[in-house]
Amino acid sequence: MSDKPERFIDDEGLRLDGRRVDEIRPMKVEMGVLSRADGSCYLEWGNNKVLAAVYGPRELHPRRMQKPNEVLVRYKYNMASFSVEDRIRPGPSRRSTEISKVSGEAFEPVVMTQYYPGAVIDVFAEVLQADAGTRTAAINAATLALADAGIPMKGLVSACAVGKVDGQLVLDLNKPEDNYGQADLPVAMTQDGEITLLQMDGHLTPEELEEGLEMVKKGCQQILEIQREALVSRYGNEDEEAEEESPEEVPESEEEEEEEERDDSFDNEESEAENADENDVTEEDEGEEDERQ
């Protein structure tokens, strides 16, 4: 652990790691990294390395935790014992329990909970390497893992921190800034700028808080852009994709196709005569499916 630096920002306005005050650390995203999870995402943000996994919606046990009308989003933030220089004791701590709670709540406004009543969506955020801002990194990874799992959401959540060092507001604190700075303000927001998580460590004046929120909004927009890019580019170039899609996947005809398939598979076992009324059934069914849509 480095000692407190004399100055956080040099004469040219550059920070210890060479960034400007309103610059975020480079971020690298990889999706679908875990084969057994329903959705997963590995994210590197500066020296932070975070792995997020989503399981579900699945059956919730114990049953008393079930919500009769909506799905429960259970978020678990955990730091690996080797994620920091001095080994931390594995298992839940006061800090990780708190972060799990607030991070889970950060997704409440975006996840369409009414779709899967009584079920649970488990989100696990594992910090493999920590370098300040792990809760925001975990949220950014978890959003992508949720999207990867096919969870219906109103939008993506992006998170970023703002802090104060040498009396100056800086975006996305690094380790020394976090350890010896005057304030740390992690924020998560939706794409509309609706804040879903806000915590503060240290001291900021009301004016600084307001200015900091403006800075963090710009940071979150940059992160949202990275998240978007990760999602859209995952299946190759967007334009090519649009052309190359074959007409076979038209959703409107899905229901018909299924009915066809049923006819086919039953033909093998059933007589021709019965096939006739199977066709009648098919027509009825199609009508009903249309109504449903």
Binding site: P251, E254, E257, E258, D263, D264
Partner: peptide
Amino acid sequence: VPRIIGHNGSMVS
């Protein structure tokens, strides 16, 4: 599943 069935069951047949 719809893709495996295909357009009017083309893939599955």
